[in-house]
């Protein structure tokens, strides 16, 4: 009886080990199953989902116009102090002084891509871009000014 158990144990153990080896042997011989993504090589074909949050950008149209009114809603919504908006006063067509954005400072190094600023924006001036290769040699390069130089507020955006 003892001997029977003893050999039963051995047989079961060996059987379980062999089934494991069969599984790894299967993958060894079936190279179709390989899932490696060869990242820097497949850059050209890499498609990121449109909702992927890589960084905050401010789209400009062909006339170098953006939609940011400088209302600072995004600055208030940001949990990390990622966004700083510097405003200036401009004279509009009727000669009235009007607040406008001077520099939209975006600290990528502080950003957690939580999407709260995008949701807070009343004029859809900013959106999330799909770029994700953000590494630079100097941290100061991560502080970006999103509105392009000489850019203006798009007509009709209040």
């Amino acid at each position: 009886m003892f001997l029977k158990d003893y050999f039963n144990d051995i047989a079961q153990a060996v059987g379980s080990l062999l089934s494991g080896m069969r599984r790894t042997g299967y993958y060894f011989t079936h190279h179709k199953e390989i899932i490696t993504e060869q990242y820097p090589d497949n850059r050209a074909t890499l498609v990121l989902p449109e909702r992927f949050r890589g960084e905050v950008v401010m789209p400009h149209n062909g006339q170098n116009e953006h939609r940011c009114t400088g209302c600072t809603a995004c600055e208030l919504a940001c949990p990390n102090g990622t966004i700083k908006i510097v405003t200036k006063f401009e004279l509009n067509a009727e000669g009235k002084r009007k607040k406008a954005v001077d520099a939209f400072v975006y600290h990528l190094e502080l950003c957690t891509m939580c999407n709260l600023c995008i949701q807070a924006c009343p004029t859809d001036a900013i959106k999330m871009a799909q770029s994700f290769e953000h590494s630079v040699y100097d941290r100061s390069q991560l502080t970006k000014i999103l509105n392009k130089p000489e850019s203006k507020l798009q007509e009709g955006v209040e």
Partner: peptide, 13 residues
Amino acid sequence: KVSAYMQIRLGPN
């Protein structure tokens, strides 16, 4: 290479 193929990856290439 053997470990890579068993682990469904390519290994050094």
